[in-house]
Amino acid sequence: MRTPDDRWAELSAAALAGELSRAEAAEFDELRRADPAREREYAEMQDLVRRLRQGDLTWTAPRESGGLADRISASIAREDAETAPSSRDGGPVASRRRRTWWTPALAAACLVVGLVVGVGGANIFDRPVPSGPPGTLGAVEQITVSDDTAGVDVDAQLVAHTWGTEAYLEASGLDVGARYELVFVGADGTEFPAGEVLGTDVQIVCRMNAAVLRGDTVRMELRDTGDLVVAHAELPAV
């Protein structure tokens, strides 16, 4: 079931990417006028995007591991070459536990900025990056993912950032056309959405971001629209 927060997240991410239509811009302006808290949050996200574009914040690339980074980089390059129109259909589904209402928009904003940085400069996977135990900023963390649905195969790696936690996700066997949401869960049950993917008949390789520090999350779940967990990983303590 979609909620007003889902629509707010969609419009915020589209506004940060400069992709609002005239009707959407009017709708977004009305939402901001009606809720001063949302207006403040959007201003903070605008500042984050501005700082990333100006180089005030550093984009730290993870270390290549097992060929996953190369496949992600190649996937991004293919998307850029195809210049396919973006889609903003759908949003995070309602969760079983409480979640912070602004995190879907922030996660989406970080993803958009990350793609811009990757296209504008050298291949980010060519840069030297650190290594270390879970929670080390910029280091790739290998995690064990358990597949909870027959026929589904999911693998993932994590990267801790100062702004949140990034997941490198590989998935196959998902229902074609179905929506799946990646969620990080805190020790107190708070949920932090990291975005959604659509099931396809080919392997999915993507990067997803959540506005939660690595040390504040203990579990990662991939769910379908019915809130059924199709794969999960218990995360080591940091």
Rank of each mutant, 00 (worst) to 15 (best):
39 E>K: 10
105 A>L: 04
81 A>Y: 05
111 L>Y: 15
131 S>I: 05
138 G>Y: 01
93 V>Y: 14
30 E>W: 12
22 R>H: 09
63 R>C: 12
53 R>N: 08
32 R>H: 06
72 I>H: 04
107 A>K: 07
46 Q>W: 01
50 R>N: 03
55 G>P: 05
37 A>E: 14
34 A>M: 12
116 V>R: 15
67 G>I: 08
66 G>L: 12
73 S>R: 11
118 G>A: 15
97 R>K: 07
142 Q>W: 07
68 L>E: 08
74 A>M: 07
128 P>S: 04
48 L>K: 01
152 V>R: 01
99 R>E: 13
42 Y>K: 01
160 A>H: 02
151 G>I: 04
53 R>E: 14
24 E>S: 01
28 F>L: 07
72 I>E: 03
155 D>W: 00
113 V>C: 03
94 A>F: 04
101 W>S: 03
111 L>F: 14
152 V>L: 04
109 A>M: 00
123 N>I: 05
54 Q>C: 07
56 D>L: 10
20 L>N: 10
106 L>F: 08
88 R>I: 08
121 G>P: 08
151 G>V: 05
59 W>I: 03
155 D>G: 08
106 L>D: 00
103 T>G: 08
68 L>W: 01
74 A>Q: 12
38 R>F: 06
52 L>Q: 11
103 T>A: 13
148 D>G: 01
151 G>P: 08
39 E>T: 10
76 I>L: 12
49 V>D: 13
155 D>E: 15
59 W>G: 14
118 G>Y: 08
115 L>K: 13
48 L>E: 11
60 T>R: 12
54 Q>D: 14
152 V>T: 00
63 R>E: 13
60 T>E: 12
64 E>W: 00
73 S>A: 14
132 G>P: 13
138 G>M: 05
82 E>I: 09
86 S>I: 13
76 I>N: 08
85 P>C: 06
91 G>E: 01
87 S>H: 14
76 I>Q: 13
156 A>E: 04
102 W>L: 03
113 V>Q: 05
141 E>N: 03
95 S>Y: 15
75 S>C: 14
18 G>H: 04
73 S>C: 10
28 F>A: 00
22 R>S: 11
17 A>D: 06
143 I>Y: 01
62 P>I: 03
88 R>F: 14
30 E>A: 15
77 A>V: 11
132 G>Y: 11
